[in-house]
């Protein structure tokens, strides 16, 4: 059984078929890349998996159970964490508090224990802070834990989003263009981070335009064009697939997708 199975999902916006029976699987422990020209529907696939959209037909199985139509926070609780293409950090809150947001769904303190500041609540809070600092250390941002998230450099903000997602103990991490807007040096350290995430046993599914990065870290690629899967398999076969070459040479990088 694959960790994630996307089974023939179709998503329609008005008259536009954004996804047409998209079908692929993500094996446990692997790094899978979802690629394709702009507007191919990559982010739409992500939004369907994370519960932001509900596909019109088809199903999404996570650990064999359907997660179609589940609310986004429920999907995170089940073990799928994401980052956003357009960075969505809580800019005015501290770096540490941003990571604590990811930890939220693993904590139990409710309204009453918070109001009355119970010993159990305090212990849980301390453990959460410790755990989140470890995640910050993992991506190399522990030194700036007190800064406002919005004041960080662009590349650091992307890493912070990854740390925030990791804090929820995900089994599957979904990265939407993690290297977008990064310089070569930042991209290189991102490759290290993704490799280390994989080392931890976390499965990664990512959208990326940087082909060198994709070829380097993904063992499987899924290529989308106009909402259709036109190829899937290991990077070498995909690279030589005539449909893929046509799709890529036929279009040019223009505007990014929204979300």
């Amino acid at each position: 059984m694959s960790l994630l199975e996307v089974c023939d999902i179709t998503k329609i916006f008005g008259g536009l078929v954004a996804l047409n029976e998209v079908d692929f699987t993500v094996e446990k422990g692997s790094v899978v890349g979802l690629i394709g020209p702009n507007g191919a529907g990559k982010t739409t696939v992500f939004n369907c998996i994370t519960g932001n959209y509900v596909p019109e037909s088809g199903d999404i199985l996570f650990r064999g159970k359907s997660i179609r139509g589940k609310k986004p926070h429920k999907v995170v609780e089940l073990g799928i964490a994401r980052t956003f293409q357009a960075i969505r950090l809580f800019g005015k809150l501290s770096v540490l508090e941003n990571v604590l947001a990811g930890r939220h769904c693993r904590l139990k303190s409710g309204l009453l224990s918070s109001l009355f500041h119970t010993p159990a609540q305090r212990r849980e809070e301390e453990a959460a802070v410790e755990r989140c600092l470890e995640e910050l250390h993992f991506v190399g941002l522990d030194r700036v834990w007190q800064e406002e998230a919005g004041s960080l450099a662009y590349g650091s903000q992307r890493l912070l989003e990854i740390a925030r997602a990791l804090a929820s103990d995900p089994e599957l991490l979904i990265l939407d263009e993690p290297a977008g807007g990064m310089n070569d040096q930042e991209t290189a350290s991102l490759v290290d981070v993704i490799a280390a995430i994989r080392e931890r046993g976390t499965t990664v599914l990512l959208i990326e335009h940087d082909m060198r990065l994709v070829m380097k870290i993904c063992e499987k690629l899924v290529v989308l064009e106009h909402g259709n899967v036109i190829a899937k398999g290991d990077p070498e076969t995909v690279k030589t697939n005539p449909d893929v070459i046509e799709a890529y040479l036929g279009t040019d990088d223009g505007d990014d997708e929204e979300y």
Binding site: P72, H73, A81, R88, A101, A165
Partner: peptide, 16 residues
């Protein structure tokens, strides 16, 4: 506070 700052991001982080 997360909800006040950005409710879509909050939901995406696992906040109900």
């Amino acid at each position: 506070n997360y909800i006040k700052a950005d409710d879509i991001a909050a939901e995406g982080c696992g906040v109900d």
